[in-house]
Design a protein around this nucleic acid. Structure first.
Lengths: 193, 193, 193, 193
DNA sequence: CATGAATGAGATTTCATTCAT
DNA sequence: TATGAATGAAATCTCATTCAT
C-alpha cells in the first residue's frame, strides 16, 4: 500500500472527469464521490482544485519535453528522422494519454497566473526545440532553405496537436499510420510535382 | 435606434469576455456589468447563458461554411487555388474574428446536447468539403494519387485551426503571409527534393 | 366588441392556469403568452397579479352566497329541502366551475391581508348561514335536538368542499347523484338502525 | 449530540413556515435565517427544497397509514368501532400535527411528478382501506346495504380532512369531542327519525 | 389600448474550501 | 490520514412591475 496510492487515484480519476465534462464543470464533490472518498481526503493531498490541474499539466508537459529531448539528443540521426520521431511521439502520446491531452490543451486557461508562468516556458521550449530542429535541417541541407522556421514549427504543432480533437487509437488507424501520413505531408506536401 | 442593438452588444461583449476568461469563468453578472445593463435585460434577450454561446457558435460556423461554399462554387478555379483560398479564408477569419474563433474552438463542450447536435453536422460538413476537394484534386491530377484524403483534411484543419492559439493579425506577419507559408508547406512540403 | 372582452379572457385563462400549476407557479408571462397578448395589456386591466386572484375569489364567493341566499329565501321549503339544495348547489358548482373552485379553496393564502379581510367575512357568512339553517331545523323538529350546529356545519362543508379534490362532472356520477348520496348520509347516517 | 439534529430542525421549522406562508412563499433563505444556519447547510442535507417537501409528505402519510393499519388489524373490534377510531385518529392527528397536516393537504401540488408518484398510491391506499371497511360493515350488517362505499368514503374523508382548515386543539373543543360529533353524524345522520 | 424593453430584487442552487474531531 | 458538517460567496435564473412610446 504505497503512500501515494490515493493521490494517484485522485489524479487519474480527475483527468477522466475533466476530459469528459471540463475542469470547471467537474466539482471536487464529483471527483471524491466517484472514488468513494470524502472532500477532506482531497484537501489532504491537494491544497486546491487548481493545484491538481497544475499537477496534471506538469506531468504532461514534462513527459513530452523529456521524450522530445531523448529524440533530439541522439547524435546519429538526421533531422528528418528526428522530426518523424517527434511527430510519432506526439500522436502516440495523444493516443495513449488522450484524456490528459485533452485536459492539457483545453484547460490551460484554468491555471492560475503563477502556475501558468511555470508551464508556459516548458511549452515554449518544446516549440522552440522544433524550430531549432528545422533550422538545423535547413543548415544541413535536409530542408528547403527559404523556410520560415517559426511558422513551419507552428504548422507542425497544429497538425499534431489538433489530433487531440479527433484521434482515437482504437479507431481504424494506428498512431503509427497517422504519423506516417502526416510526416509525408509535412516533408513532401500533397501536390503532384 | 436599431431594434436589437442591446442584444448585439451583449453578444459582442460576451465573445470578448469568453475569449479572455472562458465561458464557465465568465458570469452573466460580468457580462451585464461590463455593459451597464442588468441581468433582467440579459435574460430578456437570451433564455440562458448557454443559448448565447449557441448563438455565437451558429454565427461563426455559418459564416465559415458560407465563405467556404463561395470558394468551392467557383467553376473556373482549380483545386490548388481553392485550397489556397480556403486556407487563407480560415487564417484571415481567425485573425479578424480571433475572439469568436477562440470561443468557437475552445468552448464547444459547453453547448448542450441539443445545441451540439445542430452545430456538429455543420462542422462535419466543413471538413468533408475539404476532403472532397482533395479527392477531386487527386482525380484531376493536381494532388498525389496515394493520399488519404480524410487524414490529410484533418492535417490541414490542424494547421489552420491551431492558429487560433497564437495568430494575431497585429503581429509581425499578416494572415496572407502566414497562409502563404502554410499553403506552400501543405502543397510542397518542407524537405529538399 | 365589448370593452371587457380582454379582461374576461385574462381572468378565464388565469383560472385555468392557476388550477393547473398553482398561483405562485403561474407567471404573468405565462398568462399573457397563452393569450397572445403582452404584459402591458395585463397591467392595463389589473394593477397586480394578486388583484386578479382577488377578482377570482370575489366572483366565486359572491356567486355562492347569492345562490345560497336564493335557496334560503324560499319560504315554502323546509330545512331538509333547503339543506339538500345547498349541498346540490355546492357540488354542482364545484363540478361546473371546477377550476375556479380549486383556485378558491387552494389559493386563498395568496391574497393580501386587505383582500383577505374582504373575502373572509363572506366565507364566514356562508358557513354561518348553514349553521343557522341547522338551528332552525332543530327548532322546527326536523333535526335532532342535541346537535352541535357549528361542528355539524363544518362537517357538511367538509363533505361538499372536499369534493373539489376529486369530483369531476365528466366521471361516472353526476353532481345530482353524488349530492343525493351525501344528503342521505348527512340526514340519515350510514349505520343500520 | 445526535447525528441529524440539524436536519430535523430544518424539517420542523420548514413545516411551521410552510404552514404559515405556503411552500412557494417560503424561501430557503427564510428557513435558514430562522434557524441561524446558512443556505449551504440546507443544501448539505437536502438536495432541493422540493425534496424537503417530499420528506414532510412521506413522514405524514406513512404515519397515517401505519396508524390506520393498527386500527384495522384489530380482529376483535367491529366496523363501527374501527371507523370511530379512524375518525378520531385523523382529527387527533390533524390537531397535533396541524402544521404538517396543512402542508400535507395544501402543498401536494408542489411535489415533482416523480415524488407525487410515490405519495399518491399511499393516499389512495388510505382511502381504499376506508372503502373496504365500509364494505365489510355492509356485509356484516353493521351498515346499510345500499351504500355507495366509494362516495361514502370520500364523504368521510371530506369531513375529517377539511378539519385542517379550522380545527385547533387549543380551541374550545377537543379532538375527542369533535370526533364524537362527526362519528355520530356519519353513523346516524342529523335528521330526526 | 397596447407594446416591448428594461429593471431590481430575490429565488434556488452550487461549490471550493475550512476545520474540529 | 480521513471524515463530515458547515460556510459564504457567487452562480444562474425568475418575475412582478414600470414606463416611454
Amino acid at each position: 500500500m504505497g503512500l501515494l496510492v490515493v493521490k494517484g487515484k485522485i489524479t487519474e480519476q480527475s483527468i477522466r472527469l475533466f476530459e469528459k465534462h471540463g475542469f470547471s464543470e467537474t466539482s471536487v464533490q464529483d471527483i471524491v464521490d466517484s472514488l468513494g472518498v470524502t472532500k477532506g481526503t482531497f484537501y489532504y493531498y491537494f491544497s486546491s482544485k487548481e493545484e491538481l490541474l497544475m499537477d496534471i499539466h506538469h506531468k504532461y508537459i514534462n513527459d513530452l519535453v523529456e521524450n522530445q529531448q531523448k529524440i533530439l539528443d541522439n547524435q546519429e540521426k538526421d533531422c528528418k528522422t528526428k522530426l518523424t520521431e517527434i511527430v510519432f511521439m506526439l500522436i502516440g502520446h495523444i493516443g495513449e494519454q488522450g484524456a490528459s491531452a485533452k485536459v492539457f490543451f483545453r484547460e490551460i486557461e484554468n491555471l492560475s497566473e503563477d502556475h501558468l508562468a511555470a508551464i508556459i516556458p516548458k511549452r515554449d521550449q518544446f516549440r522552440l526545440n522544433i524550430e531549432q530542429l528545422i533550422r538545423e535541417g535547413i543548415s544541413g541541407g535536409e530542408f528547403k532553405s527559404d523556410l520560415n522556421a517559426s511558422i513551419v514549427a507552428l504548422g507542425i504543432l497544429g497538425i499534431t496537436n489538433w489530433s487531440y480533437q479527433w484521434f482515437k487509437p482504437t479507431g481504424s488507424m494506428s498512431a503509427h499510420e497517422v504519423s506516417g501520413i502526416f510526416v509525408d505531408m509535412i516533408l513532401n506536401g500533397i501536390a503532384l510535382d
